[in-house]
Nucleic acid binder design. Structure first.
Lengths: 222, 222, 222, 222
DNA sequence: CATGAATGAGGGTTCATTCAT
DNA sequence: TATGAATGAACCCTCATTCAT
């Protein structure tokens, strides 16, 4: 091997590329901006990337992979639902969602840039991809709820999943822009309550009226 | 000396600018593309706009104004709400929303371009502006609902308005991408039901249980 | 029409392009060299040429056309040959060739650059094209000579035309490099004599021996 | 620390450099092309050559030396000429020339590249150098011929040598482009005949007419 | 006002050369 | 000596903007 490759150069370059692309978008980003930020020569850029566009694609894909994986993990709903364990189930979902929003919060700088400054259609497409992934997750959760008798049977699941995912989408966009970290648990409980009460089957609906036995549920949802 | 003063040049230029900017974004759009589309000389561009960026801002503002005005009109909720006229009130809201979605449907090509191809942060910002406007509308409606006793009093209105607006936002994005015009009325009724049942006060909640008097409401919301 | 196009700009650019390309070759020539020589802005180059390579092709083609046309005209051999008018015929050919070499002499700067400094394969190819054109001309002349009984019948015309054209080719290369204008007529007479005596038919050969009648021919060829 | 000292690296590099330079010319050849072909590191190039241009000069000189040496050997005319041994003498020359053309034929790929693809002025110069060397050889042969009475005395030797060398030059260029190996002997005999008959002294000229004694010469030259 | 030729700054990319290992 | 990653000067081309007509 020749001159030892600066092991930190490649990651520095990637990081710099992401930062510059996310800040300025593909067209406004200058290769020289990226190499300067990475403290690397201009020519060095082309040791790591085929072209500016290729670097851009690389960055976008890396973001998709990182965020997507996390999101998938956070939203996967295993565990059975039944009217009996409703309160626990929802608390479980809420805590999973809290974990996801914690992740979003930690990544908020990057995400905010994607949302506000990602001046490129590639990032828009990426956003849409996440949104659709979230929607499919929501649809699965709704179907599970119908199957277990929690939800009514007579609504259009796809449509409802669009609403639900849209609500989460906007909530996420809202959250990453906040200055102070909000109380994710209460946020997400209100969300769950809207969905649950909005779609609840008669049986579950009753629990909101009944005095004693459902205290717990009512408490957790209010 | 060139073509005699051409009164149609300015609107043609604006139209062309919008088309090109929306298709390619600020950076990729070339002044010459715009003037070619407007059948105007390149120099003429600078008789009408300060610079390319100025033209872009102009276009963005024009879109905001046009769409925003329509939207405002469509969503403005005048008229009193009370438990008594609940069914009518909601039908009224649904029909207003249907009108808005009809407008979106008619403008779907332009909107789709803004969403998918609007390769510039300015358009993203514009989208966000609409989204926030919608959220504020939703918040007002929720507050009116609380005031009239339709909704519970113990939820975070701002948060709920985020959910609601997010749901509409995604629905709108979904709709403009459809091939076939969907049934807006049923779409928007499901939406209303989600919100109403999700946030309904005890009094209204009862109406879903009560046998006779609320038939109408139940029917319209299911 | 807009700003009046500088009518002299295009020819200046062409001239400059030829000068620079011929001096440095395609690869070493810089667009800026050309535009500087033409006293034109760098961008202006691309108003007249698609690309540097396109400009190069243009220049090459222009040279081919100019020189080729002249050459064709100069070498075309009309007029009948017969043993009777041999001396006149050859004087006629010689004077045509003298005219061609006068042209070469006048263009010697450009040609010399093509030969010595034309650092590009395109110019080599161009040279070959001229060479082949010359060879075909030679072949035609030889065939005419055979038909009229001046030349023998038993030699390979193509081969002989290669020799003859090669001889002229080198002579031309030699001439354009000279400092002083040489005596083209005697040069080209020696050439003709070589060819004539080299290929002469027995009948013509005799004329070189016979005392009186052929004095003229012998005189002109020696 | 890299590969242990590799004795074959230097010749491989030279060979690769020649191949790449001959194929692409100085400007289009990339150092990396050469080192890749030589299976040597890029840095290694600069252990063997001062610079790309130096390598180029080296290659050009090597070609000149190799080919020049061969050519010199092939064309050197030792042995006396006299009218008595004319036929043998010419057969001797022809066979030497055949040997040279055999060499050209064997090297035709390289030569063709030099002629057609040698995209650099250095190679053109090299070609001219060969041509001039050939011309000087021809001049020497002509002088020897004059001295021995074979040729006339009253022509411009330098001029004639230009013709003769030019003819050979073009013949050589023609030959290396052929698909099939031609009959060099007959080619070169026609060439000799042209020159001999073109310049022959009266004494030799007679041999073409005389019946018996010169049969051999006439036969060999026709 | 209208035109479109002219301008020139700017940036992506290549590649000869250097140098730390 | 051999390596190949790193460097940065150089150069083609684009395109927003200007300006003479």
């Amino acid at each position: 091997m020749g001159r030892a490759s600066d092991a930190t150069a490649a990651p520095r370059l990637l990081e710099a590329a992401e930062a510059i692309f996310v800040e300025h978008g593909l067209d406004r980003a200058r290769v020289e901006d990226i190499t300067a930020l990475a403290r690397v020569s201009k020519g060095s850029f082309y040791l790591h990337f085929e072209s500016k566009e290729a670097a851009f694609r690389h960055v976008v894909e890396a973001i998709v992979t990182t965020m997507g994986t996390y999101m998938e993990a956070a939203l996967s709903s295993e565990g059975d639902v039944s009217i009996g364990n409703l309160a626990e189930y929802f608390e479980g979902r809420v805590s999973k969602e809290v974990a996801l929003f914690e992740f979003l919060w930690d990544s908020r700088r990057r995400i905010r840039l994607l949302l506000e400054g990602g001046k490129s259609s590639a990032f828009l497409h990426l956003m849409d991809e996440f949104a659709d992934r979230a929607r499919r997750n929501a649809a699965k959760a709704l179907e599970a709820g119908i199957a277990s008798g929690i939800y009514q049977k007579d609504f259009d699941v796809e449509l409802a999943s669009i609403y639900v995912a849209g609500a989460y989408d906007r909530l996420a966009r809202h959250v990453v822009r906040l200055e102070e970290k909000p109380d994710f648990a209460s946020m997400l409980r209100l969300m769950q309550r809207l969905v649950l009460r909005g779609l609840a089957s008669e049986d579950v609906q009753c629990m909101f009226e009944a005095p004693a036995s459902t205290r717990q549920l009512r408490a957790s949802l209010l």
